[in-house]
């Protein structure tokens, strides 16, 4: 198996994803054992510009692949780029973010090079000379630790916000442009447009602060109150499945087993009782605040700070107090 690691430097809207520096840190853990080098590949519009932003972060070289065929993301085009790099350079490991792009791309690319893939990992370490990846199963109700076997390349997608990002280590990385080798006409699923969510807030999977509401929000318009609190931090608004099923909130912001798994720095649960499906989706948040009328609600078992009270009274006061602090 190869000892070098390739980091997929995901670009969205022309910008490098925050998770990429976290991937570089994870890659360094692997090469610390294998003695290999860490390289990165940036694909698509903005690749050249963004490459300089991670030059010197412990990367040996950065491949920049940006031509017509791969300017926009496609699983087929990008899988071809990764497969050819793995073939040419003999990478033993390929790391990517567990994002909508990484989760779409990883398995396809891994299959193309007869590799294996571990999805949505929260920790990567070396144990007794072997790679061990920890990942949640059953929406975080349990975890498993996996290790690769055989000689194929190992693809690993890592959830954002789990690993401290790599910092600048001095020096610079060799940046080289590379043709994609992809025939645009051969791509059979093509993105024609990106339709942003209304509201302009970050996605719950990427936000540092999430303010979530449950069924106790009573109606859709009451979520404005949570938005006001979230906006103090440039955060996101989330919702429990109960709130989504009741029509108070849209599905893209649902947190939990049939929604999204999140781990922000601060998660404020308002009127959420804490069904196991919801806890599974937000349990790993660094600091959890629960506001609930019912002192026996299970959410308090996972929370770090709790207030037993009416969210309609507590949230506006909390917003006002935090606003004063942040001024």
């Amino acid at each position: 198996m190869g000892k070098d690691v390739l980091v997929f430097g995901e670009i969205r809207n022309g910008e490098l994803k925050k998770v990429v520096k976290e991937l570089i840190a994870a890659a360094a853990v692997i090469t610390g054992e294998t003695g290999g080098a860490v390289d990165a590949v940036l694909v698509g519009a903005g690749a050249e510009k963004e490459a300089s932003g991670i030059s010197g972060y412990g990367l040996r070289k950065i491949a920049v692949v940006d031509d017509d065929a791969v300017a926009d993301y496609s699983s087929e085009g990008y899988a071809a780029v990764l497969a050819s790099l793995v073939g040419e350079e003999g990478y033993g490991y390929v790391l990517m973010g567990a994002t909508s792009m990484g989760r779409d791309l990883g398995p396809r690319a891994a299959a193309r090079v007869d590799g294996v893939m571990f999805s949505d990992c929260v920790e990567v370490r070396i144990d007794g000379g072997a790679l061990v990846a920890r990942r949640p199963v059953y929406s975080g109700k349990l975890f498993v630790e996996l290790t690769p076997e055989g000689d194929g390349p190992v693809f690993i997608s890592i959830r954002p916000n789990n690993i401290a990002p790599a910092g600048e280590s001095g020096g610079s990385s060799e940046i080289a442009a590379k043709p994609s080798g992809v025939d645009r006409a051969a791509i059979r699923a093509i993105v024609s447009e990106i339709i942003p969510l209304a509201g302009g807030r970050p996605d719950v999977t990427e936000a540092d602060v999430i303010v979530s509401g449950g069924r106790a929000m009573k109606e859709e318009s009451n979520f404005r109150m949570l938005e006001k609190l979230a906006d103090l931090f440039g955060g996101a608004v989330g919702a429990s499945r109960a709130a989504v099923d009741a029509g108070y909130a849209e599905q893209p912001i649902q947190v939990g087993q049939t929604g999204k798994v999140v781990n922000p720095k601060l998660y404020i649960a308002c009127g959420i009782s804490g069904a196991i499906q919801h806890l599974a989706g937000m349990r790993t948040s660094k600091v959890i605040v629960a506001i609930n009328k019912d002192a026996s609600a299970p959410i308090f078992e996972k929370a770090h700070y709790g207030i037993v009270g009416d969210l309609f009274e507590v949230v506006p006061i909390l917003t006002e107090e935090l606003e004063k602090m942040l001024q």
Binding site: R12, Y73, R188, A189, I190, P196, L197, E206
Partner: peptide
């Protein structure tokens, strides 16, 4: 197709 912060519109053969 759902992505972070929105949807991608995709045409597939």
């Amino acid at each position: 197709r759902r992505i972070e912060g929105g949807d991608e519109k995709v045409e597939a053969s």
